[in-house]
């Protein structure tokens, strides 16, 4: 697409960055990851949460939307289901969703804040995950309580270690078991994550030495200027400098590999988005393509234009950021 100089100058800065790296307009390259956000209910209220999730929220995916999603997954044969939230475990349809997806031959991964796994009513989930060969992606911002609790709340680190030990006990993160346990690091503040390889080595060493915990791998995720993290940026006076840091770290290679190009994100109410961040910003899929699961059209969605904004500098900074960590290895 040719763009006039006048339009280029008037455009959103991120579109300009894409254009300068020959990526504008950013298009989907097909759908291989079907991501479902089961709602904003959570047992925690983390300070960096882009969802703004917490115990006081009520948004929760109803059974009919879960059923619609399963019908789409089966019809299209999507290989991967990625479950997120809030705390997706707290949705009453969570276990049924996993069992149904597994029965369709879908590879299921679930995101977890870990602490929910040691609460009454959820302690059997590690065994449930293992039985269904679910890939577990667990948030753990650091290997110390001081940093983790500052971001996620008092007692979170200790509860996380207890949960990790429970997961290890059923085989997760244990070599040879085939049960994958990934940890997610995100910075406890307004700075970019370190090299994924370097911080993974730190986590592996410290968690093993101090707590006897093992895991499969680690993902680094950049904090996005959305939700509570945006609130933190504004309240702490870090917004401008953080956005400048993200923008000046724009990496065309990361932009070419952003996760929205192979993912579709379904919200708790069935609305469709390019990613979880667009979901929280209310930026539905581009006009002209279906925006609700009931109208799902794989052919149109798999070639759609991705809706972008300034927040997209978060996923394209440095080594890039995605639900599976750095995109530039």
């Amino acid at each position: 697409m040719e763009v006039s100089e006048a339009y280029r100058d008037a455009r959103d800065p991120f579109e300009r960055s894409l254009s300068e790296s020959n990526l504008f307009p950013l298009l989907s390259e097909g759908i291989s990851v079907f991501q479902m956000n089961m709602g904003r209910v959570c047992n925690l209220s983390c300070r960096h949460c882009h969802v703004g999730a917490g115990p006081g929220r009520t948004e929760s995916m109803p059974p009919r939307i879960v059923d619609e999603c399963l019908r789409v997954i089966e019809r299209q044969g999507y290989p991967t289901l990625d479950i997120t939230g809030g705390a997706p475990e707290m949705n009453g349809n969570y276990r049924r969703l996993i069992e149904s997806a597994v029965s369709l031959g879908v590879s299921v991964k679930t995101r977890t804040n870990l602490t929910i796994l040691v609460e009454d009513g959820y302690r059997d989930l590690p065994a449930f995950f293992a039985f269904n060969r679910v890939e577990v992606v667990a948030s753990l911002p650091y290997f110390s309580s001081e940093t983790t609790d500052r971001q996620r709340g008092a007692g979170v680190f200790n509860a996380s270690i207890e949960a990790l030990r429970a997961l290890n006990s059923v085989g997760y993160g244990v070599e040879g078991s085939g049960l994958k346990l990934f940890l997610v690091y995100n910075p406890c503040g307004a700075f970019l994550p370190p090299s994924q390889r370097a911080i993974e080595a730190d986590f592996r060493r410290e968690l093993k030495k101090k707590f006897g915990v093992s895991f499969t791998g680690l993902f680094t995720i950049t904090n996005m200027p959305v939700g509570r993290f945006l609130d933190f940026l504004n309240l702490s006076g870090n917004f401008v400098s953080y956005m400048e840091r993200l923008k000046s770290s724009y990496n065309p290679e990361a932009a070419a590999n952003v996760m929205c190009r192979n993912t579709i994100s379904v919200a708790w109410d069935g609305s469709l988005y390019d990613c979880d961040f667009n979901q929280m910003l209310g930026l539905k899929c581009a006009s002209g393509v279906p925006d609700h699961i009931r109208d799902f059209d794989h052919e149109r969605l798999s070639v759609r234009r991705i809706v972008t904004g300034l927040h997209c500098y978060g996923c394209t900074a440095g080594a890039g950021s995605s639900c599976t960590g750095a995109v530039v290895k």
Partner: peptide, 10 residues
């Protein structure tokens, strides 16, 4: 300070 944090220090 920023660089140390971004290199994974604490």
């Amino acid at each position: 300070t920023q660089a140390c944090l971004e290199k994974g220090s604490n």
